[in-house]
Computed example of a mutant assay.
Amino acid sequence: MKELISSTDPTVIAFASALLQGEGIKTFQMDVHMSVLEGSVGVLPRRLMVIERDLFRARAVLADNDFDLPPR
Rank of each mutant, 00 (worst) to 15 (best):
A18Y: 00
A60V: 10
P10R: 10
E52V: 09
M30W: 08
R57L: 13
P70Q: 05
F67S: 06
S7Q: 07
P45Q: 03
V12T: 15
I13S: 08
L19V: 02
I51Y: 11
I5W: 07
V41S: 06
A58R: 09
L55G: 04
S7H: 13
R72N: 09
L48Y: 06
M30A: 15
M49W: 11
V50Q: 06
S6F: 00
G42N: 02
K2H: 12
A14I: 04
V43C: 05
V36M: 12
L69V: 05
T27E: 03
K26Y: 00
L19A: 03
V50D: 05
T8S: 14
F56M: 09
A60T: 12
K2N: 15
T8P: 02
V43S: 11
M49E: 07
R72S: 09
I13E: 08
L48T: 07
D66P: 00
D68W: 02
E3H: 05
M34L: 14
H33V: 03
V36L: 12
R59E: 14
F56I: 11
F28K: 15
V50K: 04
T27C: 12
L37R: 10
D64V: 00
I5L: 15
A58D: 10
P70F: 01
L19H: 01
V12Y: 01
F67V: 03
D9Y: 05
E38F: 07
M1P: 10
V41D: 05
H33M: 13
L37W: 08
V32P: 00
S40R: 09
A60L: 12
D66I: 02
L62C: 06
Q21L: 09
R57Y: 09
M34N: 07
M1T: 13
I13G: 12
E52H: 12
T11N: 15
E23S: 10
P71T: 11
L55I: 06
Q29S: 08
E52M: 03
F28P: 00
L55F: 14
V61Y: 03
V32S: 13
V32M: 12
